[in-house]
Nucleic acid binder design. Structure first.
Length: 250
DNA sequence: CCAGACGTTGTT
DNA sequence: GTCTGG
DNA sequence: CCAGACGTTGTT
DNA sequence: GTCTGG
């Protein structure tokens, strides 16, 4: 599956790769973890892909945009995001049936840019992390879903915030989840699930295609990948440095 | 009808 | 063992 | 995903 | 909001 990943490219390269504007607060990530605010490429929040004008469906600038979102999906109907299950993954096989994902699958699919993800293998007494990349180490997109939750701030939080105006009582949480499928040959050595990695030419279909077309893309990645062991320093989500990418002996 | 869940992974 | 935090 | 906490009363 | 369980 996918519970930790890397995105180690410069803002300019990310912008060029996905055709979006990347904000100044973008930073490379060597150990992106659940609950963090991370980059996604999505359709406009108010764009309904099924009913969007042709130019939007064809993925012009209005059709895709960069956003930061929290990893762990918060459906729009939950009462309180802090109390919600926040699934970081959604099974491709059942995603269209599940209440938590169905609406997002129909209307709010996104790309999750990455240039590697980590998988752990049980080793006597601990867990050995491996990093999986494309064979050429280029950036790819994982298939994701995003949500926008808006609601009132819980009463208990009001005092802490000292809120008084109506606007201060509103809260907005944008979030995403990564789809999983069966592993390809490279990942099967490490794990029995893997993130859906999209072929580059399918990214627009994932964002703007109809749901049946999108579903057809949820297959194990067929291109060349490689994996290599990395330091157990990766295990601690507080560690975040370029050194985490270095191969180690096992 | 109302109440309560709504998810994945992995492990037993 | 299980939940929360990152 | 893994790491780390897992609690209360009272006082600052 | 919508589905499942009782």
């Amino acid at each position: 599956m996918c519970g930790r990943y890397t995105l180690t490219v410069e803002a300019g390269d990310l912008a060029e790769r996905f055709g979006v504007q990347v904000p100044d607060d973008y930073e490379k990530r060597y150990n992106a973890a659940p609950r963090q605010s991370l980059p996604v490429v999505r359709t406009g929040v108010d764009v309904d892909p099924e009913h969007a004008p042709e130019d939007v469906r064809d993925a012009g600038d209005r059709g895709r945009e960069f956003a930061f979102a929290e990893w762990g999906l918060v459906p729009s109907w939950v009462g309180e995001p802090d109390d919600a299950n926040r699934p970081i993954n959604a099974r491709s096989e059942t995603v269209r049936e599940k209440r938590s994902f169905r609406d997002a699958f129909e209307r709010r699919r996104c790309l999750v840019p990455a240039d590697g993800f980590y998988e752990w293998v049980e080793r006597g007494g601990g867990k050995q992390p491996y990093r999986v990349t494309l064979a050429d180490e280029s950036v790819f997109a994982m298939a994701g879903l995003y949500e926008v939750w808006e609601g009132e701030v819980a009463q208990s939080s009001l005092a802490a915030f000292g809120a008084d105006g109506d606007d201060d009582r509103r809260r907005r949480v944008e979030s995403f989840t990564v789809l999983t499928t069966e592993p390809n040959d490279v990942v099967a050595d490490l794990h029995h699930r893997m993130a859906v990695v999209l072929d580059r030419e399918d990214e627009t279909t994932w964002l703007h295609g109809d749901p049946d077309e999108a579903q057809a893309l949820l297959e194990p990645y067929d291109g060349a990948m490689r994996s290599y062991p990395v330091s157990t320093a990766v295990n601690d989500p507080g560690n975040e440095s370029p050194g985490l990418l270095e191969a180690v002996d096992v």
